[in-house]
Design a protein around this nucleic acid. Structure first.
Lengths: 339, 339
DNA sequence: TTGAAAGCGCTAACAG
DNA sequence: CTGTTAGCGCTTTCAA
């Protein structure tokens, strides 16, 4: 079966401690000994048993990433960034999908499935302030997004209000006066949808433009289909529209499709901006203006903070106070808001 | 620190074996005992240490999934399917990205990073027949795709030649006579690109159409940009085109964009079909015809076969012979090949 | 610079 | 039905 430290030690004629020292590239091993041991390792094809190492040392080198669904482009790109960053730091990533279901999100945090993970990066969609107690867990946890403001854990967040405000300001500068916003959630007041809606309204207010409820497109999820459906309903209602802010790119692309189906030219008749700066926005027709939420920075920060917590914990230090990290965003103008 | 079986046993006044029996929902536990133990588990918030369980039992409940990059939509959707299917069977998924680099793919198979994984689903891009020896590993391994025909492991594959042939036949039936194919790899003869090119050519041959090298678009990768660039080169060369087969949807969407930039109407002037049936093909403008490669079936089969191998191995059975599984495909006509 | 030995938390064989 | 106990492979004092 598997080759163990003991096998290598026997082959090399040394103790397992010495082999362990070689494996971990520790000093205090005579060069000649190291060579002999290394040769034995290579011959036998020794690979450390990570379960045993993890049991003994208390760390597995695996971090968990919980998100709604990886097939949604934003989360696919986020997962990519997290995996890449984690690899840099010698960690692998285990992915848990919550399907954006509140029950699944709540269960996840207590799930034994995470037990061989050193810590968790969690992008909740459905949790709200009332679930804040659930975030009191006995392992390192970093949350992403803005659902939970005052959780007991570190938190990486983008300024959704300001970013959304910038998106709508961009449409205003492009001359739009009847701006629809697609992606609102009925009755929500602290999720991404609520914050982006607020930013949108702040931009309108600052420009002295009236808020018009008929220009708010409510949706269930933030998929393409939802964007298309909401846009169709808006158009069918007969309300006049010359600009659309999609709360994410997939919504905006769905809306774009609905506009084109209705014979409206983008950007000539209606201008459209999305949010997330997905790769595909560079290849649609027209290319889609968007807000870059600083995905790489979010991933990098989350992984860094999590790894710091893991190490702090392992060292038995008293935990530093929880922090909130705010990343930066920027508007990326493309064809859909040109001219 | 963490609550162990021993703690629970002490609290409940039973032995750890009994607690273990309760945790594993085994029979032969008196109801009254079970209740007491369960109460202790809940009170103490016991969660099994999976590292220890894994060390002892030889299985971690984690399967590895190695792919080029999750941010590529096809792989994002594949990962989603694999994760969903694995969850059904009580496994979690650890993702490794190879970045489509040969060296990374080769290293991965020997990497200790996979050591706490029960088995691996591997979607290689750069390995070739000469690397077949690398696939001789001492853990359960299932490969996806068609790079390696005669590997020593189970293999889930779609019939690329037939599927590509069907795509080009679809264009021929729609009346195309000058069909470009985008995505060929220079000098390759056994990867997806080569197989899909072959299928394309078979369709031309069967229809008695000439092969025209000027209609073959060579690319480096299969990203949108590559599709757009290849299409632009083709158009710039002055060759006549009335149909385009993109070897995957992102290539096709890049090409679509290039066609539209050149003022060509799709589908009126040029018809376009892709491959992968990504969700976004339903929302582009025009919607993109594609070939559904049976992603769910691929994922489901791969996970099932892998889990079977893991169990076979755990039971100490002599391994059944390696098998190849071929999944089904179908052409999905949409607006880009209509009329 | 190297060796001996304890034990991380759990499973399962064996005993009662 | 329930308890006892021997390791799984590794890390890590503590000695030598």
């Amino acid at each position: 079966m598997a080759v163990t430290l003991r096998d290598v030690a026997q082959r090399a004629g040394v103790s397992i401690k010495t082999v362990s020292n070689v494996v971990h590239k520790r000093q205090y091993v005579k060069d000649s000994t190291r060579d002999i041991v290394q040769a034995a390792i290579d011959e036998l094809g020794y690979r450390p048993n990570l379960s045993a190492r993890s049991l003994r040392s208390g760390r597995s080198g695996v971090i968990g990433l919980a998100l709604p669904e990886v097939r949604l482009p934003y989360f696919a790109e986020l997962a990519d960034s997290v995996i890449t960053e984690a690899k840099q730091r010698g960690h692998t990533v285990l992915i848990e999908q919550t399907g954006a279901e509140p029950a699944a999100e709540r269960e996840l945090l207590r799930s034994p499935r995470l037990q061989l993970t050193d810590g968790l990066i969690f992008s909740p969609l459905a949790l709200s302030q009332s679930d804040v107690g659930l975030l009191e867990v006995d392992y390192p946890l970093v949350t992403l997004g803005e659902r939970i403001f005052d959780g007991p854990c570190d938190h990486v967040v983008m300024d959704n209000v300001a970013a959304a405000r910038a998106a709508t300001e961009h449409l205003l500068e492009a001359g739009c006066r009847r701006i629809a916003v697609i992606g609102a959630h009925e009755g929500e007041d602290q999720g991404s949808a609520a914050l982006r809606l607020r930013g949108h309204q702040e931009a309108l207010d600052a420009a002295g433009m009236p808020r018009d409820d008929r220009l708010v497109g409510y949706v269930g999820l933030w998929h393409r289909q939802d964007g298309a459906d909401a846009m169709r309903r808006l158009l069918a209602s007969g309300v006049e529209v010359d600009g659309v802010f999609g709360m994410n790119d997939t919504l905006a692309l769905g809306a774009l499709r609905a506009l084109q189906d209705a014979g409206l030219a983008v950007p000539e008749g209606v201008k459209v901006i999305g949010f997330d700066d997905l790769e595909e926005t560079r290849y649609t027709s027209p290319t889609l203006s968007s807000v870059d939420p600083g995905r790489m920075e979010i991933a990098r920060t989350a992984v860094r903070v999590l790894v710091e917590r893991i190490e702090e914990r392992l060292a038995g230090e008293t935990p530093a106070p929880r922090r909130q990290y705010t990343t930066s965003y920027r508007v990326v103008p493309r064809e859909s808001t040109a001219g």
